[in-house]
Every structure is written in structure tokens, then in C-alpha cells.
Write a protein that binds this DNA or RNA. Structure first.
Ligand SMILES: [Mn+2]
Ligand SMILES: [Mn+2]
Ligand SMILES: [Zn+2]
Ligand SMILES: [Zn+2]
Lengths: 151, 151
DNA sequence: ATGCAAATGCAAATCATTATCATTTGGAGG
DNA sequence: CCTCCAAATGATAATGATTTGCATTTGCAT
């Protein structure tokens, strides 16, 4: 398990102790295909028979986010904090309003836009958060199917 | 006060009763130069000697947002819901991390971007929320001033 | 003016998250 | 391999924004 080793290294590098709770949480987020909230992470840990307390989950997540080992974002629709592995890419979330699935996208149309805003109103941009909502491919097809059937 | 009259009409048009609480809240948001949270609105009402309960403030705000007489958004930094008048323009928020001021901007760089995402991954976009954070003109200048002085 | 559904006030409940504090543990140094 | 202590965790209470239940009030159609 080189995964576990690199987690250990990452924690050490940030001056954090290598606890089984932190390692387990990093593992969960490593495997996850989309951002998860604290409850989902807690549930995944319980399922894997990892003994941990929910308050520890919150504490660990905040600590790891502070050290930038993971990324903390917040959903607009649902008001829970979301956590995902930090792959050091600038990404955004596509949230399907039907199935709630979150798709990560790399494209970002902001470089020029930010320059324009700075020139126009003197606002120095440090960052941004974008949440895009809509309907994913799967749900789109399912809905079309349902519409056909109901004719 | 034609303001009050148009509020009455707007409420009627949405099938809502014209109560003094709803009218007062619409007035507050009409005058506001930036989005406000429930507490700020409540405080503004109390200051204006409008008798109202905080839970009514929440209920009215949610009702008005449902009927699209106002817009409900949520800040990422601070986790409180924000409310602003609906002028039926597509806008975004610039949030100053120094003074917390929110500046509304009309520009949006998304039209092309959304088309691209739809073609690329079949995601049908219904909308998006963007929050841009940085430092406003005033704070920028203040900070520069402070730096000079401390040399 | 009357009646009644809709709206409000008040208080308690909810839900995510954080804080407190006693207990445990990772890991540096011997 | 021990010792030790700051750091981390567990258990539980607290917090803060928002919602909900229910009794009372009020807008407004008739
Ligand atoms: Mn971006
Ligand atoms: Mn936009
Ligand atoms: Zn979907
Ligand atoms: Zn500012």
C-alpha cells in the first residue's frame, strides 16, 4: 500500500501526526469519485470498521484542508461543507439537480474575465468559487425515455 | 409612495396577501445597496419600528424568493443566506475579503463555456452561481497606505 | 360587516458544525 | 525498547442559522 505511505509522508511534511483516523480519511477521499460531506465520510469509515467519532471527522477534515492536503468547498444547493482530494488542479463542480451527482471539470473561463474586472472597477481578485447546476447525461436520457413512454 | 403600490401589485400578482411585514421587507431590499442576510433585514426592520418576528422574516424571505420577487443566494465565506431585490439581471457577487463589501457585477463569461461543456460531456446547464473574492479598490488603497507608513 | 384561509408570533425543534475537557496516543529523545 | 508530553481523539454539550408546530391574528373575497 504505497497509498498509505504517501499519506504518512504528506502528514509528516505538514507537521501532523500520522493517526489511523487521518490516514483512513485520506484513503476515503482518495477513492472517492466526487466530493463528500462529513456525514458521508463518517459513514464510509464506519462501514470500513474504522473506529472514529464524528467530531474527529470534522476536526481532521478542517486540519487537512488548512494544510491543503484536501480541499474544502461548500455546496450552494445543500448547505453542507464538501471535501475532496487536492490534486492541485483548478476545478469546478457540475451538480446534477436530478441525481445530485457532482462532476469535476478542469476548464475555467476566468483568466480574461478577472483581468477585465480589475481594470474596470479596481477589484483585485484572489479567487472564485463556481457551482454549475443542470442535468447530467444519464438523467437527461432517462427523462427523455420517460417522456416517450408517457405519450 | 409608488414603491409601496408596486409592491402591493407584485404580491397580488403572485397570489400573496399584502401584509405590512412583506411590504416592509420588500422596502428594505429595495433600498439596500447590497445583498443582506436575515439578521440584517430583521435589524433594519426593528430600527424602522416595524413590529415583526425573526421567524416571520425567514418565512417571508423564502416565500418572496419562491415567487421570484427577490433572489436568495448563499455566501461561501459566511454561511448565511443572502437576499437581494430581483432586478431580472444576471449578476454575480464580488466579495471583498477585507471589508466584506459585496459588489454586484453584470458581466458573465459563461455563454460560450456552457455550450462547450454541453457538447463535451452532455451536461445540460440550467444555471450557475459564482462568487468571486478579492480586495476592493478602497481596501487596496488603504493597505498600500499602511505599507508605506510602516516602512 | 362576516368568515375563513392565509399569515404571523412565539417557542421549541432541527441540523450542521464547533467547543470543552478528560483520556489516549504518536513519535521524539534517551 | 521505555518514557514522556504535546498533540489528537472521544464523548458530550453548546452554538448559530434556519425551520416547524400551533395558537392567534389579519387580509380580503363575498
Ligand atoms: Mn475557475
Ligand atoms: Mn454568470
Ligand atoms: Zn443526474
Ligand atoms: Zn474592501
Amino acid at each position: 500500500m504505497s497509498e498509505t505511505l504517501s499519506h504518512k509522508e504528506a502528514l509528516q511534511h505538514s507537521g501532523l501526526k500520522n493517526t489511523k483516523q487521518r490516514s483512513a480519511i485520506l484513503n476515503i477521499l482518495e477513492k472517492a469519485t466526487q466530493p463528500l460531506n462529513a456525514d458521508q465520510i463518517y459513514l464510509a469509515l464506519v462501514t470500513e470498521k474504522v473506529a472514529i467519532n464524528l467530531s474527529t471527522v470534522y476536526r481532521v477534515l478542517n486540519t487537512l484542508a488548512e494544510k491543503e492536503l484536501i480541499i474544502k468547498t461548500s455546496s450552494v444547493s445543500d448547505n453542507k461543507a464538501l471535501f475532496e482530494r487536492n490534486d492541485f488542479k483548478h476545478q469546478h463542480h457540475l451538480v446534477c439537480v436530478e441525481c445530485k451527482e457532482i462532476i469535476l471539470v478542469d476548464e475555467c473561463p476566468f483568466e480574461e474575465y478577472e483581468k477585465k474586472l480589475n481594470e474596470k472597477i479596481g477589484f483585485t481578485i484572489l479567487g472564485h468559487q463556481l457551482e454549475i447546476y443542470g442535468i447530467c447525461d444519464k438523467c437527461q436520457k432517462r427523462i427523455e425515455e420517460e417522456n416517450k413512454r408517457s405519450i
